[in-house]
Each structure stands twice: as C-alpha cells, then as structure tokens.
C-alpha cells in the first residue's frame, strides 16, 4: 500500500508542479494591466515560453538520441509562414492552420532524417544545416507567399471560429501549450519509448539486442523535435503577428541548443530555466547594463561563453545547482552536528 502511494506521488508530482507553474505564468497579464510590470515584459516572457516549447522538442533529440539539429530556426520559420498563409491569405481556421503548419515541416524533417540518420549521427547536423539554408532561400525568394524581405503578417488567433483572442489571450494560449508540451514530454520520457531512447543513448548494442529499432527511434525523436519547432513557429506568428526571413537564421538554432545545454540536458524544468537564461538574461539584464548594454553582439558572446563553460565544468546544466546546493547544505549541517555531538 505504502509502495503504491509513493509510486502515485512520484508519477503525479510533476503534473501539479507544471500546473502551478502555468498558473503563476498566467498572472503576468494581470500584473501588466495593473501597471506593476512593463508592457514589453509580456512579449519577452511569451517568446521565452515559445522558445521553451521548441527547446523541449530538441532536448528529446539531443538528450536522448545524442543528435544535433541545426534546422530548428528553419522549421520554426516554416511554421510561421505556413500558418500566416493559411489563416491570413486563405482565410482558413486557426486549428486547421495549426495542424497543417506542424505536419508539413514534420514531413520535410522526416525526409531529411531518412537521408542522414542511417549513417553517422553527426550527419544530421550537417543535413539540417543545409536544409535550413534552403528554407531561408525559400522564405526570401517565394515572395508571392512570403513577401520576401518585407515579411508577412497574421492576426491573433480565433479559436473554434468565434473566440477571437487578444494579446493577453494569446499569451495564455502559449502558456497552455507550454504546460501541455511539458506534460507530454514527461509522459513520453517515462514510457517505453523514453526508456528505449535512454537505452539507445547508453548502449546502442543493448538497445538493438532488446529489439529497439535504432534508426526508427532516431527518426522519431527528430520528427518530434521538428513538430515542436513548428508548433513554436505557429504560436510565435500569432503572438508577434509578423515574420521575416532574417528572424530564422542559424543563430536562433544555436540559441535553442544553448537553452538545452545551459539549462540541463534531459531535464524539463532545466530546459525552461535555460530558456529564461538564454533569452531572458540578455533582454532583461545585459541590455540595461552600462557599456555592455550598447554592444551588439553581447548576447551572442554571453551565450557562447556560457555554453562552453557549462559543457566543460557543469555538464548536466545549471538546473542541477539546486541539488548541489542542497547537498552542500546537508554536508554543512552534518558537519555542524558532528561538531556539536
């Protein structure tokens, strides 16, 4: 009985945590309207949440399959253009746009994966790099859909055909999707696919001996990563309401990788923390500092240096700081007890 209880607790604890996190985030529009925080903070936090969704997908790919995708920005951009085209140009409902704008990039992702995943792992990074270059070219040159360099616009989403969201409503929608993705990721990692991915990462030999089709699972984790990138793109489009080719450059893909590495590989909360560090710190802190704030590349350098430092000295990511602090505190207390005793 006791055993069952701990199991239930272990399994359901994260749900409550995720839900609580979502509720806290949902208070932000209220704070903005009360004038307690700045209007622009909502935009910053919303984009951090969107990048968290994207990074959660990529964390599955990097953390569990040990694969790197450099096409994240490209697939996100594709999501923005597709949903803008479907809702604004074709006038079709948001829900349909959401499905198509996630499915099409996923299909292209799977095709890219089919080519590159059969061989060495590092081929995927190169293949996705090439694909994202092609996608950017498409964003620029297919100007009859994308408007080329001038960019494309869309509106806040209208749910179910009648519920027109405003800025705050769209923000809440983003929060909803983030919590949903966090729950989905938690479930997947703790199910047989998650265990198969873990086994693959630890030992490809053991995985294939236990019947795990390595190629198929690599492809699966890449498809999921692409799907969440595109989902992030769709949400971005309907919140920012503007997309243009230069928003979807390699640097964004690198920043998303930085999110995972800095925050904590294979950790859901670590990924969200990473997004706040990578996209929040430059926006909220670096820009306000004297001298550094006026330098263009400061954010890039900050994230680049942080990536390297974390990999070299703290490879499990900054999310583990809390455990380390706990452990050290406990040690400290024990020492105290010993002295007292």
């Amino acid at each position: 009985m006791n055993n069952k209880l701990t199991n239930f607790y272990k399994l359901h604890k994260p749900y409550t945590q995720f839900l609580l996190f979502g509720i806290i985030l949902s208070f932000l529009p209220l704070l903005v309207s009360l004038g307690i925080v700045k209007y622009s903070l909502l935009t910053t936090v919303a984009s951090i949440l969107i990048y968290s969704i994207v990074a959660l997908g990529l964390n599955l790919l990097l953390g569990y399959s040990g694969l790197i995708s450099l096409g994240t920005a490209g697939f996100m951009g594709m999501g923005t253009y597709l949903t803008a085209f479907i809702t604004a140009d074709l006038g079709l409902p948001f829900e349909l746009a959401l499905i198509i704008s996630v499915a099409v990039p996923m299909l292209i992702g799977v095709l890219t994966g089919l080519v590159s995943l059969r061989i060495e792992g590092y081929y995927l990074a190169i293949a996705t790099l090439a694909i994202s270059e092609i996608l950017r070219k498409v964003f620029i040159e297919f100007d009859f859909i994308t408007n080329g360099f001038s960019g494309k616009q869309a509106q806040y989403p209208k749910l179910l055909g009648f519920l027109q969201l405003d800025r705050n409503g769209t923000y809440i929608l983003i929060v909803f999707f983030l919590i949903l993705v966090m729950v989905m990721m938690h479930n997947l990692v703790n199910s047989h696919t998650g265990r198969a991915l873990s086994t693959m990462r630890g030992s490809e030999a053991a995985a294939s001996a236990m019947g795990v089709n390595i190629y198929r699972h690599r492809l699966l984790s890449f498809a999921i990563a692409v799907a969440f990138s595109a989902l992030g793109g769709v949400l971005y489009m309907h919140f920012v309401r503007y997309t243009y080719p230069n928003a979807w450059i390699l640097m964004l893909s690198l920043n998303i990788l930085a999110v995972i590495v800095i925050g904590g590989i294979r950790s859901i909360s670590g990924t969200v923390l990473g997004a706040f560090i990578v996209f929040g710190v430059p926006d909220l802190i670096l820009k306000r500092l004297p001298v550094i704030g006026s330098i263009d590349g400061a954010a890039y350098i900050f994230n680049g240096v942080l990536i390297i430092l974390v990999i070299l000295f703290y490879p499990n990511g900054l999310i583990n700081i809390r455990y380390d602090i706990q452990r050290n505190l406990r040690k400290l207390f024990k020492k105290g007890e010993e002295i007292n005793g």
Partner: peptide, 18 residues
C-alpha cells in the same frame, strides 16, 4: 550493458520493449 540513468526495474522492463 545496463543503463545507469534508469532504475533496476526500468532496465529490466526494457527487455520487454517489443
């Protein structure tokens, strides 16, 4: 070839993956 990050029972469950 066991997986360090998984618990003992989870490692055994991988044996029934299919």
């Amino acid at each position: 070839e066991l997986i360090r990050e998984l618990t003992v029972v989870e490692n055994v469950m991988v044996g029934a993956h299919i």
